[in-house]
């Protein structure tokens, strides 16, 4: 027994810093949020109410209408990113990795730069560009004779959310582009050469050889987009305010949570209902990520080079 395997302390020691920091700043707040959602404020204190806050959130017609509206908007926000941002990102990456393209480093940097800008800057700039009063968008459309197409997009219920989603796409298209670009560069030359020997070149080479090889990267991008979009808040708050106008057409889960948790104008904040919304958001993201991990990622084929 004395000669049994020594306890490998170094594992615990080396893991400790990460575990401690992660627990302190991620796990503990997460559980305290879950805990907060089970209480409510009463005269001079708080009381445990079990799942009552969730009953209000999903059962009360007003709360549930606001919640489903926010969730629906959030799904549309996500759909625009998946349908516009990621295909464009892949296309740009494919173009950038073409050996015949000149100034590719310049394009790469230029397209990536908006990603590092603050939401405040992006929201403000786009609000100005699209402003019906001082913006350059109406003038530019006028120059090409399409003034009639201009509308105060951010103020119209039917366009505001899509406009904001496209602004967000403009800002973040650099991320899928970079990830796919890296994945494309990591495809070994001999595979490409073998394809060329077999007469597969150009677009057909992209569709048949490269795309299957970058599918795992596309999967990762999709899940990053999903998590990012369901946690989104900043752009909407900066450009439309906490009431996410017009008429809550741009209200997503993040702004709904903010309004409820911190209050707005005369409405006092309700941390407990806010925590209930945060918990629902957490559950939605968790389910989404699980679907990806267990149903999609396990089926993606990986190629070892």
């Amino acid at each position: 027994m004395a000669k049994g395997r020594p306890i490998r302390w170094h594992i615990a020691v080396f893991l400790a810093p990460a575990v401690l920091v992660y627990s302190a700043i991620m796990i503990l707040p997460l559980f305290s949020t879950l805990n907060l959602s089970l209480f409510t404020r009463t005269e001079g204190g708080t009381a445990f109410v079990g799942l009552d806050n969730f009953r209000t959130l999903f059962g009360d017609p007003r709360w549930s209408a606001a919640f489903w509206n926010a969730l629906g908007n959030n799904l549309w926000f996500f759909a625009v990113h998946m349908l516009v941002q990621n295909p464009i990102g892949i296309l740009l990456a494919a173009l950038l990795s073409s050996p015949r393209l000149r100034f590719s480093a310049f394009y790469r940097t230029a397209i990536f730069i908006p990603t590092i800008l603050s939401f405040v800057v992006v929201g403000f700039i786009w609000k100005l560009i699209l402003s019906p009063l001082w913006g350059i968008a109406p003038n530019m459309l006028d120059m090409v004779g399409l003034k009639s197409l201009f509308a105060p997009w951010l103020g119209k219920e039917e366009y505001a959310l899509t406009t904001l989603a496209l602004i967000s796409v403009w800002q973040f298209v650099g991320i899928p582009m970079m990830l796919i670009y890296a994945a494309l560069l990591s495809i070994p030359d001999d595979i490409i050469e073998a394809a060329e020997m077999d007469g597969i070149t150009g677009w057909s080479q992209f569709w048949r050889i490269k795309l299957p090889l970058i599918l795992p990267a596309i999967g990762i991008i999709s899940i990053l987009t999903f998590v990012g979009n369901f946690n989104a808040f900043d752009l909407i708050y900066v450009s439309q305010g906490a009431l996410a106008g017009p008429n809550f057409a741009t209200d997503i889960l993040g702004t709904f949570l903010y309004r409820t948790f911190f209050g707005f104008q005369l409405q006092l904040g309700d941390p407990h209902m806010g925590a209930a919304i945060a918990t629902a958001m957490f559950a939605i993201i968790l389910v989404g990520v699980c679907i990806y991990l267990f149903l999609i990622q396990t089926r993606l084929r990986r190629y070892q080079f």
């Binding site: 609000k127 699209l130 402003s131 019906p132 009063l133 001082w134 109406p138 201009f150 509308a151 105060p152 997009w153 951010l154 103020g155 119209k156 017009p246």
Partner: peptide
Amino acid sequence: DGFEAQTYPD
């Protein structure tokens, strides 16, 4: 014109 997107500072 476009008062729908006009802000308070505007």
